[in-house]
């Protein structure tokens, strides 16, 4: 009987597509803002062509067979595009599930008189479509993970600017959690900038670091030590009261490091080291 089914499906391809499109367009979750109807039809047609084209009597239940790879490829492509476009998992899932409904509907229409055959064939179609949904989901999640990874990289890139606040004074505001990978980037950027500008003082501002634990402190100490090896002084500023409390409670020794509460006081201290004075403009004339 299964031989009949795939021929049947091939014959009824048009019907299935129409039904499927109707199902998709009738769905409340249709995202017209993300995908146009024409585009949706194009995707659906492509998938159904490949799917029905690759159906044969014997590969119905064997999903490892090579004949499925074009279907998987197309489905994967669609799932990844949808993940990037910002479709929800439900919307992506519905794409495949509505196809199943359409196929089953056509099947029911065709094999009306024979409930036994209808049941066996439906079961097969079910199994096939479930497998395809799983593939869709796997690729969808993979696509989402890629997006997350890329964003993480971007955040690391942009969030560690080295600012030249004065001739010979660099400031480096750290925003976000400080982990090993990030410390490495921060350290490299800072040291490179010290060499390029010939600065003798670097201010590491940690007001944007949400929490300091022993690991983060270790990273900070490393950065300070490396800066000192280069021949520059490193000041840590922006230490909030809570952070001071945690640091002391954890028993971290920061006594070898110059620490200041605010960036302003760190800058004032740097001026003092460099023997610079900041004066009010009017003060020059007064004696």
């Amino acid at each position: 009987m299964s031989i009949k089914t795939h021929i049947l499906l091939q014959k009824k391809k048009k019907n299935i597509l129409e039904l499927w499109m109707k199902n998709q367009l009738a769905d409340e979750g249709l995202r017209e803002d993300l995908i146009s109807n024409d585009e949706l039809r194009g995707q659906s047609e492509e998938l159904i062509n490949v799917l029905v084209g690759n159906l044969s009597g014997d590969n119905f239940t064997d999903f490892d067979s090579d004949e499925w790879s074009p279907v998987i490829e197309i489905l994967g492509g669609i799932a990844i595009t949808r993940a990037r476009q910002g479709f929800s998992p439900r919307e992506t899932g519905n794409f495949v599930f509505s196809l199943k409904e359409a196929i089953l509907e056509v099947l029911q229409e065709e094999i009306k008189g024979d409930p036994q055959t209808l049941f066996t064939e439906s079961l097969k179609i079910n199994r096939l479509m479930d497998n395809l949904s799983i593939i869709t989901f796997e690729t969808f999640i993979k696509g989402r993970e890629e997006v997350i990874l890329r964003q993480t990289d971007e955040i690391t890139e942009i969030s560690t600017p080295v600012i030249r606040v004065w001739d010979g004074i660099l400031a480096l505001p750290i925003i976000g959690t400080l982990d090993s990978a990030r410390t490495q980037v921060v350290m490299e950027n800072l040291l490179q900038e010290i060499v390029e500008t010939g600065s003798s003082i670097a201010i590491l501002d940690i007001s944007g670091v949400p929490a300091v634990d022993s690991l983060v402190a270790q990273h900070l100490i490393k950065t300070v030590s490396a800066t000192r090896l280069m021949g520059a002084e490193c000041i840590i500023s922006g230490i909030r009261p809570e952070i001071a409390q945690t640091v002391v409670h954890l028993g971290i020794d920061l006594s070898n490091i110059i620490t200041k509460a605010t960036l302003a006081s760190a800058l004032a201290y740097s001026f003092k080291i460099m023997k610079l004075e900041v004066k009010r403009a009017g003060a020059v004339n007064k004696f």
């Binding site: 350290m187 060499v195 030590s225 490396a226 800066t227 090896l229 021949g231």
Partner: peptide, 13 residues
Amino acid sequence: VVGMQPAVAITLI
């Protein structure tokens, strides 16, 4: 000691 390269400083640390 003068003129240490950044990579050298990181390595030593």
